[in-house]
Simulated scan of single mutants.
Amino acid sequence: MSHTAHIPSHRKPRRSASKLAFRAGVAGGVFSTLAVAGAAAPANAEPVTETTLEMPTLGSLEADLASAVSASAEASQQEALDQSLAAQEDAALQKAAKDAKKAKAEADRKAEAEKAEKARAEARERASRTAARTSLSAKSSSSSDSSGSADSSTGSSQVATGSAAAIVAFARAQIGDAYISGGTGPNSWDCSGLVQAAYRQAGIDLPRISYDQSSMGTSVSLSSLQPGDILYWGSRSGSYHVAIYVGGGKYVGAQNTSTGVVERSLDWDMPSGAVRLL
């Protein structure tokens, strides 16, 4: 290195005199102001306490807003849940009331059906007892007094044969069926409807009305009856009731709504006459 090389100095550069004078003046002014203020203040004046106001930060506001939104959402969700539960309770109560009403109606219906069935059973039992008593009475009357009975001449040993057997068998098969005015079967009959259907078994077509049926064939006396003969009540051309003689002093006929189709002794209700078509 040459002796003439420049070596940088490590000393601070000197400030200019003007800058130093300005800074000294400013500092002096400040210190003088402080001195005057200190002299003017009371001797016992309390030191001034500095109050620091903390301003909320942006992060704090966002947290508070999120908390408020969350609380509002929870409240709305709870309210919706309460309303849903209330609606479900109302629906359950309405369904329970409807089911209870339906069950009561069904129970009432069953009770009425059982009551009606019991009444029908009692009616059938009474009818059976009445028919049994009537049959016994008729048999007793027939056996004790045969003088006025057509069975005295025909006897109780008559057996239907041929077409008469078919007619008698059909008539007896309908015993117990109901009586209905205008009935022609298969489970309900009136008197002429039963006679007409019975004769159809033998291939014989009869008129529908009782007085027309009694006007056919040949008139026979009640003392000469044969199975299959048509019995009538009233005049032959104006009869109001007909039945079929089945032998043994008995007949089968659709009597009335109380008895239906029954088998009776001639003594129970003596017919006015009879006709024979076989």
Score class of each variant (00 low, 15 high):
S2W: 08
T4I: 11
A5Y: 08
A5H: 14
I7G: 13
R11H: 12
R11M: 15
S16H: 09
S18V: 13
A21M: 11
G25E: 07
G28V: 15
S32I: 15
L34G: 14
L34Q: 12
V36N: 03
A37P: 08
N44R: 15
N44W: 15
T51L: 15
T52I: 14
T52Q: 09
P56I: 02
T57V: 12
L58H: 08
L58V: 09
S60E: 11
L61C: 06
E62A: 13
S67H: 06
V69T: 15
E74K: 15
A80D: 14
A87S: 13
A87I: 10
A87C: 02
E89V: 15
A91G: 05
L93V: 14
K95C: 07
K95L: 15
K98F: 12
D99Q: 13
A113F: 06
E117Y: 07
K118V: 11
R120N: 09
R126A: 15
R126M: 10
A127P: 08
A127F: 00
A127V: 05
A127K: 11
T130Q: 12
A132F: 03
T134A: 13
A138I: 06
S143T: 11
S143G: 14
S143N: 10
S144W: 05
D145M: 01
S147W: 00
A150L: 05
D151M: 09
S152W: 12
S153R: 05
Q158H: 04
V159E: 03
V159R: 04
G162D: 02
A166R: 13
F170P: 09
A171M: 06
Q174S: 04
I175W: 02
G176Y: 04
G176K: 05
A178E: 10
S181V: 13
G182L: 06
G183L: 07
D190G: 12
C191V: 14
S192A: 11
L194Y: 06
A197T: 08
Y199G: 05
A202I: 01
I204S: 05
D205R: 15
L206K: 12
P207N: 07
R208N: 10
I209F: 13
Q213H: 08
G217I: 03
S219K: 10
V220G: 01
S223C: 03
L225M: 03
Q226W: 02
I230Y: 01
L231F: 01
G234V: 09
G238K: 05
G238V: 03
Y240W: 05
Y240G: 08
H241S: 00
H241W: 01
H241F: 03
A243Y: 03
A243C: 05
Y245C: 00
Y245H: 01
G248Q: 02
A254W: 01
N256E: 00
S258D: 10
G260E: 02
V261H: 01
E263A: 07
R264Y: 08
L266V: 03
D269K: 14
L277P: 05
